[in-house]
Design a protein around this nucleic acid. Structure first.
Length: 198
DNA sequence: AGCGGGATTTTCT
DNA sequence: GAAAATCCCGCTT
């Protein structure tokens, strides 16, 4: 700070302080780094969905509850929920505190440590490792223990990458919801093998 | 490739 | 008590 050459590091909360719909695009191509038992796994985010409090499909739609508390907290933290009696899915909180917006991570592409992902997925291989929101949580060992985790520190970190160009992004309707089904709030990298559905 | 059903338990009404 | 931001398997085309 005493000279003009030092790089400034912008906090995740600052970078992701934007509407979920924008953050969902912004997060495509970014990297999640997982440290487990001294081993490193790196994956690239290739598919996302936006959710916010005005959205009937969002967990935050009916306000703050014990489950959705993290969604209303600061951006750059992890919101993990349990569903269908057996699966975890994870979101990255976006926007301002109190806003109740987040981005569901629907698919990632393994970059490093694929053998550990295979272990965690019980022998599954290839695209089946991480081409779905609950699959990638199992592969990365993300459970309710990590709900509220700050992605700037600890064993799971989000490393932002330069924003991908609009030409690389496909916009579509979201998957697996019953409300607001026509809103185009799903985003994925075109031609990526790990995208959950085409 | 696509459809249909079952698994299984948390969360909120 | 019903629904749930899913996955897997088996069956049919």
């Amino acid at each position: 700070m005493t000279n003009g050459t030092q790089k400034t590091t912008e906090s995740l909360a600052t970078i992701l302080n934007m509407p979920a719909e924008h953050a969902a695009r912004r997060l495509l191509g970014s990297i999640l780094e997982r440290m487990l038992n001294g081993r490193h796994i790196r994956v690239k985010i290739v598919e996302t969905e936006a959710y916010d409090q005005t959205d009937a499909a969002s967990h935050s739609y009916r306000g703050r509850t014990p489950r959705t508390d993290v969604m209303f907290g600061p951006a750059g933290h992890l919101y993990v929920y349990f569903t269908y009696g057996m699966h975890y899915c994870c979101n990255i909180v976006t926007g301002q505190e109190g806003e109740g917006s987040a981005v569901l991570i629907r698919a990632v592409e393994p970059l490093d440590g694929e053998e550990f992902l295979e272990e965690n997925r019980g022998g599954k291989t290839g695209i089946d490792l991480t081409n779905g929101p609950a699959k990638l949580c199992q592969a990365l060992k993300i459970t309710k223990e990590m709900n509220g985790h700050n992605l700037e520190e600890g064993s799971l970190r989000l490393i932002m990458q330069p924003e991908v160009t609009p030409q690389e992004v496909i916009v579509a309707k979201r998957i697996g919801i019953k409300h607001a089904v026509d809103m185009p709030w799903r985003f994925y990298l075109s031609d990526n093998r790990y995208v959950s559905r085409y």
